[in-house]
Simulated assay, not measured.
Amino acid sequence: MIPAVQRDHAVRTEGRVYGPEQEKREQLRLEAAERFERGDEATVIAADLRVTERTVRRWRKVRCEFIATSGAGRPPMFGGAG
Rank of each mutant, 00 (worst) to 15 (best):
P3S: 11
E53D: 13
D48Y: 08
R12C: 08
E26T: 02
E65R: 12
W59R: 02
R35P: 00
R74M: 14
R57P: 01
C64H: 15
D40Y: 06
F66P: 06
Q22R: 14
A46Q: 02
A42F: 06
R7K: 08
M1C: 13
W59C: 02
C64P: 01
A10T: 14
I2H: 00
G73N: 07
I67Y: 12
E65V: 09
A42N: 15
I2G: 03
Q6E: 12
R16I: 04
G73D: 07
E26Q: 12
E14S: 09
G15V: 03
G39V: 03
Q27M: 06
R12Q: 11
E34R: 14
F36W: 06
R57N: 12
L28F: 08
G80Q: 06
C64R: 15
V17Y: 08
R7G: 02
R57W: 08
R57Y: 09
T69M: 14
I2V: 13
R7I: 08
E53L: 07
A46W: 00
G80V: 04
E41Y: 08
A10M: 07
D48F: 04
E14A: 05
A32S: 02
A33C: 07
E31F: 05
H9L: 11
V44N: 10
E34N: 10
M77L: 12
V56R: 03
R60I: 02
E26C: 00
R29P: 01
G80F: 00
K24F: 04
W59E: 03
A68H: 07
E31Q: 10
E26F: 10
L28Y: 09
F36N: 02
V51Y: 01
V5M: 11
G71L: 09
E65K: 13
L30D: 07
M1K: 15
F78A: 12
T69Q: 11
P76E: 08
E26I: 05
Q27L: 00
C64L: 11
G80E: 06
G73K: 05
E41C: 02
T52G: 13
P20T: 00
T13R: 13
R60G: 01
F66A: 13
M77D: 04
E26M: 10
V51H: 02
Y18F: 13
V62N: 14
R54S: 09
V56T: 06
A81M: 08
V5F: 13
G73C: 05
G71K: 10
E65A: 12
E23S: 07
A46I: 07
V5G: 05
R7W: 11
F36R: 05
Y18D: 02
T55D: 02
Q22E: 08
W59F: 07
E23M: 09
Q22L: 13
E37I: 06
